[in-house]
Structures are given as C-alpha cells and as structure tokens.
Amino acid sequence: MSEDEAMARAAEMGVLTLEKLEAMTAICSVGLDMIAVPGDTSVDTLAGIIADEMAIGVMNHKTTAVRIIPVPGKIAGEWVEFGGLLGRAPIMPVSRASCTGFVRRGGIIPAPVTGFRN
C-alpha cells in the first residue's frame, strides 16, 4: 500500500478499504502488504486479520502474507511517513467489532480436504 502512490490515494478517498483489499487478495496479489492501521488496534483484531488472510491462502493453495503496521498514536485518516522506497501510507480504518472469542480458541484450524492429496 505505502509503496504504491495510486493505491495510497485510493485508500485516502475511501475507495480502497481493508475489507476490499482482503477480498482482492482472494483473486490476485499475495496479501496485505505495508498497510497502516490505527495504533490502538488490538492484538486480537490483528490476529483476526492475519487469520482471515491465511484462510484465503490455505483455501486457494497459494501464498498469502500480512505486513501490517499498527502505527502508535495515529488514528484512521491520518498519514504515516516511512521514507525511502516504503513511502507514505494513510491509516486505514479497522472494524471495531471484537473477534477475541474466535482467535483465542487457539489450536489448529484443519486444512481443507484437498490437504489430504499427495
């Protein structure tokens, strides 16, 4: 996100949201890369975002990755400057609904049935 000026602008306009980006990674791209989110985003919410993205990779048999920066002290709509090739990124809003109950179950979410193929 921060490495692509046009995407950063689209995010600022509210055209690209975290949910839309995540949906797009099911078709193309390899995940949520260099996404800045509010610094008060909880660890459980970050875990939820990671788990969702991992599920897309697991079910589509492709590589997906998450590189998110919860920028301390920043709120949605502000910008963060990383400098150099990493550029600058808008802080994207994140759902405030809690996924604590789900992500703290722990353990392994099993592979799809196709995982048995050898």
Binding site: A47, V58, R105, I108, I109
Partner: peptide, 16 residues
C-alpha cells in the same frame, strides 16, 4: 499456515 496443515491459531496470536 499451509494448505496441507491448516492454520496454527496459536502462532497467529503470537504473530499478532
């Protein structure tokens, strides 16, 4: 996570 192993939610929590 992997398509053969599934998602290790303990590791997801540690990563977050």
């Amino acid at each position: 996570a992997s398509s053969r192993a599934g998602i290790n939610m303990d590791a997801v929590q540690l990563a977050a």
